[in-house]
């Protein structure tokens, strides 16, 4: 029996409009799915470093897509060519769409020219997962680091991106910092573009 559909069925995905990205689902849905991502990947690896790498790879695929979609939909087809531009895009637009708020902070590293940090007091992916003690410094933020790397790499700003816990005085839970270290070619190009 053919069901009476409420939403219009499209013959093909290419006919379906891109939509404005305003649809919502529950935070729990994401939390449950994400914890399965972590659990599943744990069965595929031998150590924490590999687990983080797999989470990063999963995030990278999301980042690549988010870059294409959001530059088109949220930024009127503006393609970022400058370092601060792409960082601002990530800190504001990407964060707002994916996590419902702009990131807490974007800072330039004090010790190295090629380092920048995006920090979040309570990164979404770290909110529901309690890391067992025997997993040491494992950080689910690796998934978000992957998203950031996916955006940067595809936009032409290759970088090494990692997630770190930073204990904050007076706070029970550490904040999460996404550390971005740009490749040399990016720094050279930035200097050339002036």
């Amino acid at each position: 029996m053919i069901g009476v559909g409420k939403a219009k069925q499209y013959a093909n995905v290419l006919d379906k409009p891109l939509g404005r990205g305003r649809q919502e689902v529950s935070l729990s849905a994401f939390a449950f799915l994400f914890s399965e991502v972590v659990q599943y990947n744990q069965t595929q690896v031998d150590n924490i470093a590999e687990l983080e790498r797999r989470l990063e790879d999963a995030g990278y695929a999301v980042g690549a897509r988010v870059l294409e979609l959001l530059c088109h939909r949220e930024k009127g087809n503006r393609r970022e060519t400058r370092l601060l531009g792409i960082l601002s895009f990530i800190h504001s637009t990407v964060w707002k769409v994916l996590f419902g708020k702009v990131a807490d902070s974007l800072e330039k590293g004090t010790e190295h020219e090629d380092e920048y940090m995006i920090s979040e007091k309570e990164l979404l992916v770290n909110r529901f997962i309690s890391v067992p003690k025997d997993m040491g410094a494992f950080n689910c933020g690796a998934f978000v680091a992957g998203i950031v790397r996916g955006v940067l790499d595809n936009a032409g700003f290759p970088a090494v991106v990692t997630a770190h816990f930073v204990p904050i005085e007076g706070q029970q839970r550490p904040r999460t910092t996404i550390l971005i270290k740009f490749a040399e070619e990016v720094i050279h190009r930035e200097a050339r573009l002036g």
Binding site: G21, Q23, E24, V25, S26, L27, S28, A29, F30, L33, F34, E36, V37, Y40, N41, R54, A58, G59, A61, V62, R65, V66, L69, V97, L98, F99, G100, L124
Partner: peptide, 24 residues
Amino acid sequence: VWKTRVDKVNAELVTLTYGTIVSQ
């Protein structure tokens, strides 16, 4: 319940995350 007791996120976050699971 949906209106009053559920914390919400952008559906795209879930779509993209699930897509990554299947693709992996």
